[in-house]
Amino acid sequence: MMALRDNGPLLEVEGLTQKYGHQIGCEDVHFSLYPGEVLGIVGESGSGKSTLLRCASGLMQPTAGTVRFDTRVDGLQDIYALSEAERRMLMRTDWGIIFQNARDGLRMNVSAGANVGERLMAVGERHYGSIRDVSSEWLEKVEMDLGRMDDLPRTFSGGMQQRLQIARNLVTKPRLVFMDEPTSGLDVSVQARLLDLVRGLVRQLGIACIIVTHDLGVVRLLSDRLMVMRRGRVVEQGLTDQVLDDPQHAYTQLLVSSILPV
């Protein structure tokens, strides 16, 4: 995760603003993300964290500001200046998006194996046998029972669906993965295993990651850096342990002191 980085940032967000009419989704957000780095974004519901994630991940064009990504060929490029086709290609190859609700990230009416294989075909893999091999390798990596490979995801539990979503996204070896509340609908026991799985994979593959969550425990364990949002603005950002152990802003202090002890 922490190889020496002489290279520039993988993602650079500047002055990002999204307005819904008079309502502010997020306003004037700046950050850079380096290869292999995990950034957590926390804040209460309505603080703008999901809006920020959607804008930064190419799902929604912001009202103002830029999102630049270090493309393999042309270096840093404004993703909203790319053509639709180029942006789709980027999202299929270099990016992964793991949604809170697995139904938004999976195709529920095709098998688990096909959900994973489909992403491979999208990047040009055509050989059926090798697609099946790579797919099953990934299902094993996320600890899925291979006996369920030909079953439909809607027959899976929430935790299994989430693991399938992870396999589907990571199979193309993206350099950046966005996660929106990846563990929030799951049992605590399933959460811990999923967190460990995500952490291991992110590190093995050197993937940079942006995780939106309201769970400070999740960011403590997974993220290197933390951004705290309130009313659409970033009120504080820094190293995760520094922000949680020595919060500077009144709102972060309130957030940290409100954690219930177990």
Binding site: M1, M2, L4, R5, Y34, R225, G238, L239
Partner: peptide, 11 residues
């Protein structure tokens, strides 16, 4: 910068 601190902590 945070990524520099992280590298210092790692090594």
């Amino acid at each position: 910068a945070p990524h520099v601190v992280l590298d210092i902590r790692a090594r």
